[in-house]
């Protein structure tokens, strides 16, 4: 599986990373280098092996249904690059 320029462009768009046209060939080479290398896994026999998602606990611990957080409007907004009153503001979105 090797990436072409169009795929690099699409993946960058999915990841919301602006990539300048002139940088695409370099990225394409780099990504193909990495992907070509990880391709080696295809050779490993994993028949019947249960995928391992994480290193942690066997099951979720559940917390009680109590309001213990929130009520900190100003702290939530304090780092915002743009805000209007108590809202975060972004360029207008057309749905």
């Amino acid at each position: 599986m090797s990436l072409d320029t169009a795929t690099v462009r699409r993946v960058a768009s999915l990841a919301r990373l602006r990539v300048e046209e002139q940088d695409l060939p370099r990225l394409e080479t780099e990504l193909n280098g990495i992907l070509g290398w990880i391709e080696q896994l295809q050779a490993v026999d994993t028949t019947g092996v249960e995928p391992m998602a994480g290193g942690g606990a066997e099951s979720l611990r559940m917390r009680e249904d109590q309001v213990t957080d929130g009520g900190q409007q100003q702290a939530v907004l304090a780092n915002a690059p743009d805000r209007a009153d108590a809202f975060f503001a972004v360029p207008k979105v057309v749905e």
């Binding site: 109590q66 213990t68 809202f87």
Partner: peptide, 24 residues
């Protein structure tokens, strides 16, 4: 429910904007 699925912030309808928000 009183609190959110993965945080302890309240779920009540009609609060001030961003007043029922945890950092999660």
């Amino acid at each position: 429910s009183l609190a959110k699925l993965f945080s302890g912030a309240a779920t009540e309808f009609g609060a001030e904007p961003n007043a029922q928000v945890s950092f999660i």
